[in-house]
């Protein structure tokens, strides 16, 4: 009898590339997906760019005279204040774009497609890595745009060598990677976009309590240690040193330590959170 004979399609030989090749390929695919999202829905990205640009123009053109008198010690010199404020604004731009990361991760997790990814034989971390790489690229793009505004209003680097420019770029990327991993974790714990944007608020508020707009030494004494050792201040001081030749001191190491620490913490937190069973 033939009724009980079922044909079995020949199994395609399963390609088993190394795990690493798998991870890279799947992450690249996920990155393309995130870039498609960003390309099709640029408004979120552009909105987040507005804040640093507004603050830059506000502080330079409205408060500029007072601020520059405050920092320089001498008379009001707007050009000097532009030089002072731009590095902080650039790092604040990164803080702003990662708020967008938290929101888009949180949105993404409510989509059915994520459940599909979880049931596919793909590299597990690729979903998050795609978000992180996409977000870092967006952050750097944003920094370049905001930087262009800075240059347009008169910001010039003094005597930065090619190596220092490279180090500045490296610093921005490293800082963006670390904040992004934290933001991904924030997005994962947020049930919806509103919660995500609230949870990620410190990313955009912290620069206000840093040396971005005024020197730490002009702040109240009790607040100075907080302002001085929070992640943004060392990064801002290091970037200033690289672009403007000011003293970097221990800020370079502090920046690297903060960035690597936050990146590892954010990575572990995010992946643990993502690997949990969804409800």
């Amino acid at each position: 009898m033939s009724t009980s004979i079922t044909t079995h399609p020949v199994q395609r030989p399963v390609q088993r590339p190394t795990r690493r090749a798998h991870a890279v390929r799947d992450s690249a695919t996920m990155l393309r997906r995130n870039l498609l999202h960003a390309r099709l829905y640029p408004s979120l990205t552009l909105n987040l760019l507005l804040t640093p640009i507004m603050l830059l123009l506000l502080f330079v053109y409205l408060f500029g005279d007072v601020m520059s008198a405050g920092i320089g010690g001498g008379g009001a010199d707007r050009g000097e204040y532009i030089a002072y404020i731009v590095p902080g604004i650039l790092l604040m731009t990164i803080g702003g774009t990662v708020v967008g990361t938290a929101v888009s991760v949180s949105n993404d997790m409510t989509e059915g497609i994520i459940a599909r990814f979880r049931t596919m034989a793909i590299h597990r971390g690729s979903v998050l890595i795609g978000h992180v790489v996409g977000s870092v690229l967006q952050a750097i793009m944003s920094v370049i745009l905001v930087g262009a505004v800075g240059v347009a209003i008169g910001f010039r680097s003094t005597d930065a060598t090619a190596l220092e420019w490279l180090a500045a770029l490296g610093l921005l990327v490293l800082f963006a990677v670390s904040l992004t991993w934290i933001a991904v974790g924030m997005g994962l714990i947020s049930p919806n976009a509103e919660a995500a944007s609230n949870n990620a608020l410190p990313m955009i508020l912290l620069p206000l309590f840093s040396s971005a707009f005024i020197p730490i030494s002009t702040m109240p004494g009790w607040f100075q240690p907080i302002a001085e050792y929070q992640p943004f201040t060392p990064a801002i001081e290091t970037l200033r040193g690289l672009l403007l030749g000011t003293e970097i001191g221990h800020n370079g190491w502090l920046t690297v330590a903060w960035s690597v620490g936050l990146a590892i913490l954010g990575y572990l937190w995010s992946t643990a959170r993502f690997n949990r069973d969804p409800r």
């Binding site: 997906r33 999202h37 099709l40 829905y41 059915g112 497609i113 459940a115 599909r116 034989a121």
Partner: peptide, 18 residues
């Protein structure tokens, strides 16, 4: 297991943005 299966869930598992 994942390499052997396909899943279509109750709530459509498509990427709505693309």
């Amino acid at each position: 297991v994942r390499a052997a299966i396909g899943v279509t869930g109750q709530f459509s598992a498509v990427d709505n943005l693309i």
